[in-house]
Design a binder for these strands. Structure first.
Lengths: 351, 351
DNA sequence: CTGAAAGCGCTTACAG
DNA sequence: CTGAAAGCGCTTACAG
């Protein structure tokens, strides 16, 4: 038999209400009784049933995480960040991979059953409509890193900022003939990233010809094929920005096969900072998406919404950073040494 | 106001008990009333509150997943497998990273509060004692891939089998002078794997000298250092088995720096089949640990325990498989062609 | 086949 | 400062 609040009350010679007060650290309890009750709880190892507490309070202390696939390369880092902030307030993350058809239905019924207090939707490709319905019914929902097609509160990477950083680094390395491999054009972030990249290049002496920008599907093979297209078109480039690390890995393979040295002849910068970036050869310099921070920001936003806060009208945008590894030349950042390895032409505009 | 079972009962003109019967698909309900109630539930979009159901039934339909770190490279695959089998029975996975000190306490109190019906403990390094306590108190616990130091029900990789497969493949490739980099010796699996590797080599003409076996800490850098030790000792080897993909990646780096071609001069086989294995150069041939299957098996075992089944005395052992990529030579498996690239000496014993 | 009642284990006004 | 009672929304014997 499980120890219940009634048992503790009996043993302490008080009512359940008083035990409940002690449990919830209410101030209006006589110190002596408080002590006594607490002692008994400690002795018996009493822990209140979460079911009962949840039912009585009408909440769960759990967040539903909706994701197409648990094996998404950056999901672990994102959840790590989310879990960290959730744990501090005693919340738990409940996993709901909805990749296959049945996943969504199960998730939806759990949501309707109020199994969780809020929903963290990671890249909800085709379920935004349904999520909006849930949201309208009052279930707090936060979307991570999706296009802003929906009106749902969201947290996203600043892809334009990422593009700018990539450009900046290539300029610092003195690379002026640039090429870019983008992700699928239907994804909003792709245009943003390309725009940021292009903008930073303006008035620098660097060039990114339209013919040197090609699209790929996000996979390693896609990146390989895209890089081969660039190489076969005999387009000269000494700097390549790839909007996705998996594609960048494929591009490295194509460059290697073509006999182009990296970073000597071509400097390569990826995007995402997936775990794989540390294992390519050379290791991949890349624009880091702040995955744990995204998760943390989403978690906090969700907690705010659960707490009754109004949804922000604009997506929360998080800046990127650059992780320098082996596919770009080491550039000394000491003033005056910047252009050491540069071509001699002015690579840097005044900012 | 949330629709409750009382609302449905009123609308249908029946008692709550009858609605509950319909809800739980009990056979003893008049088809007509059953129809009517179901219709009303559909119209109102009624979904029973999970809190109330859980409290009344004394269960949760959630499993607690205890893990040191969410970012463990193979965790995603493992959870994918577990989630798949859990979802079919309507169970949910609740994440509990307990890496930092506070993690365990939160987890333990959740467990005590019966927030979940069972515990899936992934590599519970230093919490086995506490888990055993929980287990003794009647909480179903299944451990994944830990040393069998504890008496807890567990599911684990057959590392000896993995070692054998690695040996087999190197023999098929005609490699006879072998070396091995193991993980930390205090991990039980390390000895098992080495034993399997050694056993398969017996009576084959292949040699694995004691001096050619070295230990590393599991990291890329550790593998790099270990491979360098082997190289500097001027020990000749044409086949290298590394008990861990991250270490194998480090070994590849060391071999490359030393100018040894892979797989030409040295064939390399890793262990785990982490995502990174597809991104090294050359891509890494490796002994695959069946992560999703491990997760699935653990989930099923846990469900059995929750269902009241007795705990198996022996760990459930799952076999490995070999994933051939670029660090070992392609070996035609057509009879008679096996030794094409072999040295000419008998590499294969009769099995 | 169906209903009234008690119970799951808490919390929360309302009195005192 | 404390207790009796009602309520959270279900399920489950027990009657009929």
């Amino acid at each position: 038999m499980r120890t219940t609040i009634a048992d503790i009350a009996r043993m302490a010679g008080v009512s359940k209400a008083t035990v409940s007060r002690v449990l919830n650290a209410r101030p209006d309890v006589d110190p002596a009784t408080q002590q006594r009750v607490q002692q008994i709880m400690a002795d018996t190892g009493y822990v209140p049933s979460s079911h009962a507490v949840d039912l009585a309070r009408g909440r769960t202390r759990a967040l539903g995480v909706l994701t197409p696939d648990l094996r998404t390369p950056w999901l672990a880092e994102l959840l790590h960040g989310a879990a960290e902030t959730m744990q501090t307030v005693g919340y738990t993350l409940s996993l709901h991979p909805a990749g296959d058809g049945t996943g969504w239905d199960r998730f939806a019924s759990r949501a309707a059953a109020q199994s969780f207090d809020g929903i963290l939707a990671v890249c909800p490709a085709d379920t935004t409509a349904e999520l909006e319905q849930l949201s309208e019914r009052g279930v707090p929902v936060v979307v991570v890193d999706a296009g802003s097609g929906s009106g749902l509160p969201s947290v996203a990477t600043d892809h334009a900022d990422g593009g700018r950083r990539a450009a900046e680094h290539l300029l610092l390395a003195g690379r002026l003939k640039l090429a870019m491999i983008t992700g699928p054009a239907d994804h909003e972030a792709v245009a943003e990233c390309a725009a940021g990249f292009g903008d930073r290049l303006a008035d620098t002496g660097a060039v990114l010809r339209a013919s040197c920008v090609t699209e790929a599907d996000g996979t390693e093979q896609g990146g390989y094929d895209a890089a081969q297209r660039l190489l076969r078109a005999r387009l000269f480039f000494d700097g390549l920005f790839v909007h996705g690390d998996a594609m960048a890995a494929g591009a490295l393979r194509a460059l290697r096969e073509a006999g182009r040295s990296v970073p000597g002849e071509v400097a390569v910068i990826g995007f995402d900072d997936l775990p794989l970036a540390a294992f390519t050869h050379p290791t991949l310099t890349t624009v880091r998406v702040p995955w744990p921070e995204l998760g943390g920001a989403a978690a906090r936003l969700l907690l705010d919404l659960i707490g009754g806060a109004a949804a922000p009208r604009q997506p929360v945008r998080l800046a990127t950073s650059l992780v320098v590894r082996g596919t770009t030349p080491q550039v000394a950042r000491i003033p005056g040494q910047r252009s050491r390895r540069a071509t001699g032409r002015p690579a840097l505009p005044r900012t």
